[in-house]
Computed example of a mutant assay.
Amino acid sequence: MNSINEKEKKLNSALDKLKNLDLSNPDLQNNIKNLSSQKTQLEIEKIQLEDKYKLLLDEHESLSKKLEDIQNKEKLEQKKQAEFSEKIDELNQETDTLLEEIDKWQM
């Protein structure tokens, strides 16, 4: 972006200098036309680059939100797995307790 701005400044500066020159010289008039068309082309390129930049910013924001959602889902899944493991441990303990009770009753 900076190079485009620098080119635009240089072209504007050159155009200002050319305006102060004697315009009766046909070569100078051709140079002015060339510089003007180059300036127009650079302005078009600048607009295109700005549009692409905006699209990239939007895409970045969208991807950041998706990544955050995925990370939140992963945390939730890990929490659910931890709770599930705790419940399995509790059931195992209860099973062990019940088996001990059964053993006591069988003796």
Rank of each mutant, 00 (worst) to 15 (best):
S37F: 03
K17F: 11
I70A: 14
N25K: 15
E101P: 01
L18N: 06
N34E: 12
K104H: 03
K80R: 07
E6W: 08
Y53S: 10
L21T: 12
L76Q: 13
L67T: 09
K10F: 05
I32V: 10
Q41H: 12
E86C: 03
E83W: 02
D27L: 15
I47R: 13
L67F: 07
D96W: 04
E74G: 04
L98C: 02
M107Y: 09
E100T: 02
P26C: 10
L98W: 00
E68C: 07
L63M: 04
E8W: 02
N92Q: 13
F84G: 02
L63Q: 08
K52W: 00
I102L: 01
S85P: 06
E83C: 00
N5K: 13
L35G: 04
K87V: 01
E8A: 14
D58V: 10
Q93E: 14
N5Y: 05
I32S: 06
Q81A: 09
L63C: 08
D89K: 13
L49R: 00
D22A: 03
L23S: 15
I44N: 13
L49K: 01
I102C: 00
W105Y: 09
N5S: 14
K7S: 10
K73Y: 03
Q81V: 10
N92L: 04
K87L: 04
E59D: 10
N30L: 11
E61P: 01
I47V: 14
Q29S: 15
D22S: 10
I102E: 03
A82C: 10
L18E: 03
L55D: 12
K87P: 01
K9E: 11
N12H: 04
A14M: 03
